[in-house]
Design a binder for these strands. Structure first.
Lengths: 351, 351
DNA sequence: TTCTGGCACTCCCGCACCCAGAGTGCTAAA
DNA sequence: TTTAGCACTCTGGGTGCGGGAGTGCCAGAA
């Protein structure tokens, strides 16, 4: 499928116009808005060819043409000129992340920033624990048999988990166990820690030192149901999606919102982007999820200390201003990654 | 405004029927479904009186009647017979809370339980910190100047906050400070702690013991921006609201969903319920929030160790099955309160 | 006095119909 | 290869009509 230059230009303008006002584009309008000095009749001939190729279609006989998913694909892959971010917009975005050292809060900022600037729904995945490495662990006796485990990961997030032990542990024992744990496992990735722990636990526990045994005991609580729903999503601006006319159908809208609250499908989708190591754009049904039928998803992974740990992006109608959305998503990923990495160094000013 | 028994019965049946199928109720239908042996003509006379009183209205001349907000008010206040929960439903609900000792998780369960059982949106406010009392506090050195403060409140929730100190603190210092803090302030309510701290800090810091000084230093970080958005809402099942026909109007729907993501108005509303110390029902515009125009809100406060700490409830169309919803909200409040109180005792089985 | 049957009236709703407008596809000529 | 012209098609809004549902009122029955 090769398009000559003129067809490309026409396809490009057609999609741009359609994105602008959502109306099927007629041959006359196209003739007027593309620079070429051609009559509507000529345009019609070209459009017939483009329709043949499956790039555009007409909703009915006497309407103009609208892009198909394939048309958008070609547009995004080869025709789109991404417009770089303006200075002021850039500064405004940077401002959102300045002086904030709370990781959870940073992710919420990123999500709401995405949705506000693009007027679409913003999504940010919270770093998967397996990906990030352990920085520090502490055990704290709460009551007789209950111990609070505090886990600080490399991205600066603090995780709590209360576990119920089968005997009472003294404060000294717990400190000792934590020290052992920190000495042995700190700076290793959580998945690695998990592997190592499982191996250790196979050994006869009689042979262990006391500290080690206690640490193992605590770790058991950590290992069991740790990853259930920890991998989480921050979503914001869903309500922007309610005014997009393509989803006037309440039923489709409902499916979409269910996807937002279930989160599972979205997490899967974003996982793909996590592995892909670069900006990704899913157009319409391409994502494979029925709820996203009429939607496109633009995602970019973000890095903490050079390591990809999560993804963020936006969800909106297939008819979205890609050339505008793409640089915003890209920049937000950089800014969030930067802010999360920066905080490891820690701020230098006083409280 | 006094209604005779017959008018009351007719109003009650009319509203029940309208809640059932959402259609305006005609005199003939009403004559058939109320036990009374009256002709439609007689019913019409009574309906004219009820309309005069502002309890019902007709959408247009030749339609039946539908209840007004005032009508609903009278209905829920004086006519409604709440149907007690069935055994099996009760057990099912209890099951949701069994063997769960994670407060955050319990609140999410409560919210999703509410929405699943009622098929409306469920809301649960997270306990206000001021209301609950301090159980335990610990300080943990993260890096040079950064200290992790871990705060365990009476309801079992664990709060983290990273503060940046203006000098390095040794582990021993931090332990000592935590001990001092726990000895002095434990079991007091957080608002009380805050008051006492402010008083202490006015004194000359030279006079303080070292531990106390350190504790004060840490506390400063806690006091500053603590209550910003901590008071939070757990919402679920919003998408159920999309299929209620009264909100077919996308614009109203959007306002409602904005209210869900802003959360502020909802928090205000629930705060009223917190103070009212009992089940509350806001019908239509009564709540005073425009977004809730066509909605009713049913709320009940829940208690931890006898003390009201939060509220929960549902939001749905004014035309909701109150006699069904009310006992569910009531029971959920008891169950959540119970589960949160129970966990303070702690489970007895091993890990 | 209260209830009821009857009747005229009103309004909604679905249906068919028509018409203007917009846009296309095709053909023949430049 | 491009273009003008023309016939054709589809949409959407407006209109008119008839049936159905329900009311309000009145006069007579209980």
């Amino acid at each position: 499928m090769t398009l000559n230059q003129r067809s490309e230009l026409l396809l490009k303008t057609l999609i741009e116009r359609y994105i602008m006002d959502g109306q099927p584009v007629a041959s006359r309008a196209l003739a007027a808005h593309t620079g070429l000095d051609l009559s509507p009749a000529t345009i019609r001939n070209v459009m017939a060819d483009l329709e043949e190729l499956g790039l555009i279609r007409s909703p009915h006989t006497s309407a103009g043409r609208i892009p198909t998913a394939l048309g958008y694909r070609v547009f995004v892959d080869t025709l789109l000129k991404v417009r770089p971010l303006g200075e002021s917009e850039m500064r405004r975005m940077q401002g959102e992340f300045a002086n904030d050292y709370n990781p959870q809060h940073l992710m919420e900022s990123a999500s709401s920033l995405l949705s506000q600037v693009t007027r679409l729904a913003g999504i940010v995945t919270v770093p998967r624990q397996e990906q990030t490495s352990l920085r520090q662990i502490e055990f704290l006796a709460l009551s007789d048999h209950r111990v609070l485990v505090i886990l600080v990961t490399q991205d600066g997030r603090v995780h709590n988990r209360v576990i119920t032990a089968n005997r009472r542990y003294s404060a000294a024992e717990l400190v000792e166990a934590a020290n052992y744990f920190n000495d042995t496992y700190s700076t290793r990735s959580l998945s690695e820690v998990k592997r190592m722990l499982l191996r250790e636990m196979e050994k006869d526990s009689d042979a262990m030192q006391r500290a080690m045994a206690t640490a193992m005991q605590m770790a058991r609580g950590l290992l069991t149901d740790h990853e259930d729903r920890e991998a989480d999503l921050v979503v914001s601006g869903e309500s922007y999606l309610m005014q997009i006319p393509e989803l006037g159908n309440i039923d489709k809208l409902r499916k979409l919102f269910d996807a937002f609250s279930t989160k599972r499908d979205l997490l899967h989708l974003l996982d793909q982007s996590l592995r892909a190591d670069g900006m990704q754009i899913f157009i319409g049904g391409e994502s494979g999820y029925q709820a996203l039928e009429e939607c496109s998803v633009v995602t970019a992974p973000y890095r903490v200390d050079g390591q990809i740990v999560g993804t963020l992006g936006v969800i909106g109608p297939t008819r979205m201003a890609y050339e505008h959305v793409i640089p915003i998503v890209d920049m937000t990923a950089r800014l969030l990654g930067g802010a999360l990495s920066a905080q490891n160094a820690g701020p230098s000013e006083g409280a």
